[in-house]
Design a protein around this nucleic acid. Sequence first.
DNA 1: CTGAAAGCGCTAACAG
DNA 2: CTGTTAGCGCTTTCAG
Lengths: 338, 338
Amino acid sequence: MQTPTLRDVADAAGVHPATASRALNPATRGLVNAETAKRVIKVADSLGYRPNPIARGLKTAKSGTVGIVIPDLTNPLFPPILRGIEDVLEPAGYSGLIVSTDNDSDRERTLIESLRSRQVEGLVVATALLDHPLLEQLHREGVRMVMVNRRPRDLDVSSVTPDDALGIELAVRHLVELGHTRIAHLAGPSSTSTGVARAKAFRNAVRDLGLTDEPALARECAAWTEEAGAAALRDLRAAGADFTAVVASNDLIALGCYDVLAECGLHAPDDLSVVGFNGMPFLDKLAPPLTTVTIAHHRLGGEAARLLLEAITEPDRPARSVLLPPTLVVRASTAAPR
Amino acid sequence: MQTPTLRDVADAAGVHPATASRALNPATRGLVNAETAKRVIKVADSLGYRPNPIARGLKTAKSGTVGIVIPDLTNPLFPPILRGIEDVLEPAGYSGLIVSTDNDSDRERTLIESLRSRQVEGLVVATALLDHPLLEQLHREGVRMVMVNRRPRDLDVSSVTPDDALGIELAVRHLVELGHTRIAHLAGPSSTSTGVARAKAFRNAVRDLGLTDEPALARECAAWTEEAGAAALRDLRAAGADFTAVVASNDLIALGCYDVLAECGLHAPDDLSVVGFNGMPFLDKLAPPLTTVTIAHHRLGGEAARLLLEAITEPDRPARSVLLPPTLVVRASTAAPR
DNA sequence: CTGAAAGCGCTAACAG
DNA sequence: CTGTTAGCGCTTTCAG
């Protein structure tokens, strides 16, 4: 026998399917005689009945699902964000459909199309670029969405992002307090809000702390990756820049710095102090353990999910943006300059 | 205007919805006049029509989705497996619904229930325990599934797992060739096939290579975690065991060994050679870089997805088990004993 | 080759 | 409080 339907339950309980439906749905149970409800429920679970949310969705135009759009699952930044999202979604009776765009905008378009055809009620988006036509279009079409980690410029959508300015300031202040005066910055791609915000925050922090802001000490990385970080640092060194510390725009870029140091037979922090950003796992096991600005990624995801659920239940609420405060975790990759 | 339905397309093209349906579905397009089909298709995409897979699923009892059950997304072992799965699913027109059980069997039951109610056509399961009543029950109920990474004992289901025996043999042989004769093993939980298989393989390898198999040199870890690995190594040391190398049953357990060495002011490989298993990312950045047995996790996932699709399209095929060959990656955590 | 009709499993009016 | 009716969007007989 196949999985029983609402009809089977109704027949077995001697009631009409509509009554069974009402009895089984907590929200409408009040409309039904308590006795009948009890009986229906008993029959239902003796038959092992389990409602078919697909059929329900067809009728109610609510799927109980939201789409989660991330660039790359293998980037250790995202699993904790996903966990945070799921931890909020699940108790609310929603489930998340996760897709990985691979930083490919065609793929992103296709995957979001497929999410929409699956009738997701909203989107949590972690792939935002500063200038992101697809997201603008979706927004115009009235798709409910929340940005996490990054956000587009000029788009009135809710978002949950780290307080990049504060994070970078913590990093720079730490280096200045150690005595560094020539500090380089390896910025993330300028196509992302985080890349731009951190680069700008770096310049501000440097000035605020009384150092001079030297453009020659900054490089933009082509991607948020180890390879791009390594390339940027090589470039900086090749240009003859003189610096004793580097603030990397994320941890992977910082790892790229480690690679370059190893190539050159140099060591952190003796030859160069290095600070990362994000607080990936296992950073404490590196050689040397990496000083980094840490974000509570779990919370980042949780807040985003909460905002999305809110947008779903109260569509008229204006967009809100949440900034999560970072903390600096000092480890052995930073020390006073020699 | 809302997203157009098949009816809208049919009306606009001046045909019956049934005809439009046939024209739009490549599989039934042959049943329709080529001209008509062409016209319908043109109208469809001028309207931006996109079929509703939910409604289709309701009728055809096929959802185009499979469930993916993993213990914990934040374990770096799983993202590459997921990638491998998605890379196979997607071109086949399927999508994966990912759930994270958190190693909690109640949660697992609930989540699998919810996947089934969402009409998944099959399951890729990465949470298998050797003795796993829930999976046995699902199997009896005819749920199509494929195990990945681990598998239950005595259950006739398809699986894709690493060749644990070969992997451990590579590790032990490497240590023996370096001159080690007293080698310890930190086994994974004996509730999992990988834990048991690797422990057994260790004993065999030791004997085959002419050493004596000493039970006093083995400990079972309570979990596949850093903490459990550390606890096991502490225990071994406290018991006064004498050994110069340790084969950890996975990389996280090996990281636990690093923690204990650091606590005691000791260093790998001088005081103890350490070998891991899995080939997690960033192992090359550790202090010291970890020698490990590497598995192509991406392929592990890909093969599993392929087997599942096969089981879906040809339900009568017998179960198959695929063993993926590991390779040993030698880094600086192993050296000749002092 | 195409239209008519029925129905997948469920819920939302509307009566009674 | 409960049954009737209708229909979500699509596919699939079955006729024509």
